[in-house]
C-alpha cells in the first residue's frame, strides 16, 4: 500500500511531457471550438482608450489615427484589437485614419478595415481613410510632419488619391484634430509616438501591444505618457466587451450607442454564445437586435482558451507540488 502510494506520488511529480502536451492542446482547442460564456473584466488601460475614442463620437472635426507597426506573426493578438477599435469607430460615427510602416502590414490594414466595415454604411475617404504603407525610414519625418499638416506629410492614401482632396480631411489638419493615436506593434514602437507626437505636439498616445511586451511598456503607462494600453489578447477581449456594452447599444434615447459609464461596465456581462448582443444585468437577460458576429468576439473566445490553458498549467504546478511535498514527507518517514 505504502509503496503504491509512493509510486503514484512519484508519477504525479514526473508526468510524461507528452501527456502535458496533449492536455494543453485540448485545453486550447476545445474552448476555441466550443465557445462558452466567461466574464470579462475591463481594466483601466483599456477603458481609458475607449473613453478617449468615444469622447468625440459624431464629431467630424476629430479623428482617430491607427498606426500599424507589425506583420502577420503578431496578428493573433493584435488583429482583434484593431477590428474592435474600428468597429467602435464605425458604430459611433468616428473618423478613422490608418497608416502602416511595414510592407507586410499593408494587407493587414485592408483586411481589418474590410472585416470591420461589413454591415456598416461607411465609405473610404469619407468615414475612414487608409494612408497605406509608408516606409519605416520615413516614419520620423512623417510623424513630425503630421504635427504641421497631415496632408502634406502623408501626401497620398493607399489608393493613390491625394489626401488633401478627400472629404474626411475637411476638418482634419494636424495632431490638434486628432483625438487619439493608437500604435499597434509587437515591440515598443509606441515610444516614438510619445517622443515626437506627444512631447512636441501634445497628441494623446495609446498602444496596442502583445502580452510579452506589456511589461516593457508599463513605465509609460505609469507616467501617463501612454493614455491607455491594449494588453495583449486580454485587452482586445476587454475592448470587444466595451463596444458591445456601449457602442452597440441601441435605444430610443441613445440611437447610436450610449456613453461610457464605469458603473454599467462593472456589472454587465455579455454572453458570447449568443448570436445577438445580449446583456446580462443582475441575472436578467436583455437581448438586442444587434448581431454579435464571430469576428467581434474572437478575442473573448481566444481568452477562454487562454484562461483554460492558464488554469491547466496552474493545476499541473499544484499537482507537481503536492506530489513533491508528500514524497518528501513519505521519504522522511521511510528513512
Amino acid at each position: 500500500m505504502k509503496k503504491s502510494t509512493l509510486k503514484l506520488l512519484d508519477k504525479m511529480q514526473k508526468v510524461d511531457r507528452r501527456i502535458i502536451y496533449i492536455i494543453v492542446a485540448f485545453s486550447i482547442i476545445i474552448p476555441l471550438l466550443i465557445p462558452f460564456n466567461s466574464k470579462t473584466y475591463v481594466t483601466e488601460p483599456t477603458s481609458n482608450i475607449y473613453q478617449k475614442v468615444d469622447s468625440f463620437a459624431g464629431d467630424d472635426t476629430k479623428a482617430v489615427l491607427m498606426s500599424f507597426t507589425h506583420n502577420a506573426s503578431t496578428m493573433p493578438e493584435l488583429f482583434p484589437m484593431e477590428v474592435a477599435l474600428l468597429r467602435h469607430c464605425f458604430e459611433r460615427d468616428i473618423k478613422v485614419l490608418t497608416i502602416c510602416w511595414l510592407p507586410a502590414a499593408a494587407p493587414l490594414v485592408d483586411y481589418a478595415i474590410n472585416q470591420a466595415k461589413e454591415g456598416y454604411d461607411v465609405q473610404s475617404g469619407v468615414d475612414y481613410c487608409n494612408f497605406g504603407y509608408k516606409p519605416y525610414a520615413l516614419r520620423l519625418p512623417i510623424m513630425l510632419g503630421m504635427g504641421d499638416d497631415i496632408a502634406k506629410a502623408v501626401e497620398t492614401d493607399s489608393q493613390g488619391r491625394k489626401i488633401e482632396n478627400l472629404e474626411i480631411m475637411n476638418n482634419i489638419k494636424n495632431y490638434d484634430d486628432m483625438n487619439i493615436i493608437v500604435d499597434f506593434a509587437g515591440n515598443s514602437s509606441a515610444i516614438q509616438w510619445i517622443m515626437y507626437a506627444r512631447a512636441k505636439f501634445g497628441a494623446n498616445i495609446a498602444a496596442g501591444i502583445t502580452a510579452v511586451m506589456v511589461a516593457d511598456n508599463y513605465p509609460y503607462l505609469q507616467t501617463g505618457q501612454l493614455l491607455g494600453m491594449f494588453r495583449g489578447l486580454k485587452g482586445a477581449a476587454e475592448y470587444e466587451k466595451l463596444v458591445d456594452v456601449f457602442a452597440a447599444y441601441e435605444s430610443d434615447k441613445f440611437p447610436n450607442g450610449r456613453p461610457f459609464s464605469k458603473e454599467i461596465i462593472n456589472d454587465t456581462w455579455v454572453p458570447i454564445t449568443r448570436d445577438k448582443v445580449t446583456y446580462e444585468v443582475d441575472g436578467k437577460m436583455i437581448e438586442t437586435d444587434a448581431d454579435l458576429q464571430y469576428k467581434f468576439k474572437k478575442a473573448r473566445i481566444g481568452m477562454n482558451a487562454q484562461s483554460v490553458a492558464h488554469v491547466m498549467i496552474i493545476v499541473f504546478i499544484i499537482l507537481g507540488n503536492i506530489g513533491f511535498f508528500l514524497t518528501k514527507k513519505k521519504k522522511k518517514k521511510i528513512v
Binding site: 508526468v15 502535458i20 466567461s38 466574464k39 470579462t40 473584466y41 502580452a211 486580454k234 481568452m303 487562454q306 484562461s307 492558464h310 488554469v311 498549467i313 496552474i314 499541473f316 504546478i317 507537481g320 507540488n321 513533491f324 511535498f325
Partner: peptide
C-alpha cells in the same frame, strides 16, 4: 512550468506563488 515550479526552497516558493498570481491575474 510544470517541471520548474517546485517549492524546493523559500525562494522557489516565492517564485511559485508569484507565478500563480500573475497567471491568474492575466485571465478573468
Amino acid at each position: 512550468a510544470y517541471k520548474a515550479f517546485r517549492a524546493r526552497s523559500t525562494e522557489a516558493t516565492v517564485l511559485l506563488i508569484a507565478a500563480v498570481i500573475v497567471m491568474l491575474g492575466q485571465v478573468s
